[in-house]
Simulated scan of single mutants.
Amino acid sequence: MTTTGDRTSPPAATHSIPTATVQRLPEYLRALHALGDTDGDTISSEALAAVTGVSSAMLRKDLSYLGAAGVRGVGYEVSLLTNRISTTLGLTRYYRVALIGMGHLGQALARYPGFASRGFHIAAIFDASPDLIGSRHGNHIVRDISELSGAVGEEDINIGVIATPETAAQQVADLLIDAGITSILNFAPCVLTVPQSVVVRKVDLAVELQLLSFHEHHKALQRSERDQQL
C-alpha cells in the first residue's frame, strides 16, 4: 500500500526487532506526538533524526524493521508512522498499573499526567506504612501492601511500578510476580532477582546523575588540556 508520505509493508515479527531499536522507538514516538501539534503532515528522516539525537541512517534502519519506508523528497506521514510505532510498542491497548511505595517519589509518580496520556492508568496504589495506608492521593486511597495479590486480579492490573526503598523492593517484586505480574518498572536503587519470564526496567536517578558527572568531569579535563596548550 502506498500513501502520500509513507510506504508501508508488513513489519518484522516483534521478536526479530533488535533491542536497541525497541529502546529508541519511544523517543521517536515522543517526537512524533510533539509534531502532531504542528501543521506538518510529513517529516523527513533527517528532521526526525535531528530531534531524537540519532543519525538519519540509523533512524531509517530502525523504521525499516517496522515496515515503514519514507518517500524520497517527501518523508514519512506523521500519523501513519505514529500508528505503526504505537502498534509495535503495544500502545494501542490500555494498561492498568499498580504503584507500590507512596513516599515522595511515589506521590510524584501518582500525580504524573504523562501515564494516562500514553495509555497507562494507575489502578491502585499501595504502601506498608500505617501512616500512609488510608490516605488519599488524587482519586486513590493508599491500600495496604497485603492487599496487592488480590487487587492484581480484581483491578485487572498488568504492570507493577516499584517506588519503595531498596530494602523492600525485592519483597514487593516477589509479591507482584506471585500475583501474576510479568512486567515491572523499578525505581528502587537495586537489582531485582526475577524469573526469565519477567521483564524489569530499572530507573536509577542516582546512576543517571553519575553518568552526567562523568561527562562533566571529562569536559572539564578537555578544557584544562586545551588551556594548557595555549
Rank of each mutant, 00 (worst) to 15 (best):
H15A: 15
T164C: 05
L89Q: 03
I184P: 05
G134D: 05
A163F: 06
P165K: 12
L25F: 05
T182L: 04
H217C: 12
Y112A: 13
E155P: 03
L29R: 09
A206N: 00
G114Q: 00
G5N: 03
A179I: 00
M58N: 14
A49K: 04
L230F: 09
T82L: 06
V194C: 06
C190G: 03
D131S: 13
S183W: 04
G40L: 14
S55Q: 08
S44L: 05
P189Y: 13
Y94L: 13
N139Q: 12
G106N: 07
T8R: 10
Y76W: 00
E166K: 14
I122S: 03
H15L: 13
H33K: 15
E208G: 06
G36Q: 08
D37S: 15
T21A: 05
I157W: 09
L221N: 08
H218T: 12
N158R: 08
T52P: 00
M102K: 06
S117V: 11
L63D: 03
R143Q: 15
A163T: 03
L185V: 15
L209Y: 12
S56F: 04
I184E: 01
T42H: 14
I184H: 00
R223E: 14
S197N: 10
Q228E: 08
S149W: 01
I85Q: 01
A116L: 11
A31S: 06
I125E: 05
E27I: 14
A49R: 00
E77Y: 07
V142C: 02
A98G: 03
T21S: 03
A57P: 02
D144V: 04
D62N: 13
H217E: 07
L211A: 10
H140C: 04
D144P: 02
D144H: 00
T88C: 13
R223V: 03
V22C: 10
R136A: 09
M1W: 06
R84L: 10
D37A: 15
S44V: 05
H140P: 08
P10W: 07
A188L: 02
D227L: 13
G114P: 03
R60I: 11
A220V: 10
K219M: 15
L221R: 11
V172G: 01
A128Q: 09
R96C: 00
A108R: 09
A68W: 06
V51F: 01
G101H: 00
Q229Y: 08
V203S: 01
H217F: 12
D62L: 03
T14L: 14
L91T: 01
R118Y: 10
G180P: 08
V207S: 13
T14D: 11
T193F: 06
R143Y: 01
I177G: 09
L230C: 05
L59R: 08
S129E: 02
T167P: 02
L212H: 11
I159P: 02
G103S: 07
A188K: 04
E166I: 07
E216G: 14
C190F: 07
L209V: 14
M58Y: 11
T88F: 13
S79E: 10
Y65W: 11
G150R: 02
I145S: 01
D174N: 11
Q222E: 15
Q210D: 12
M1S: 12
D131R: 10
P26L: 02
L80P: 04
I157K: 02
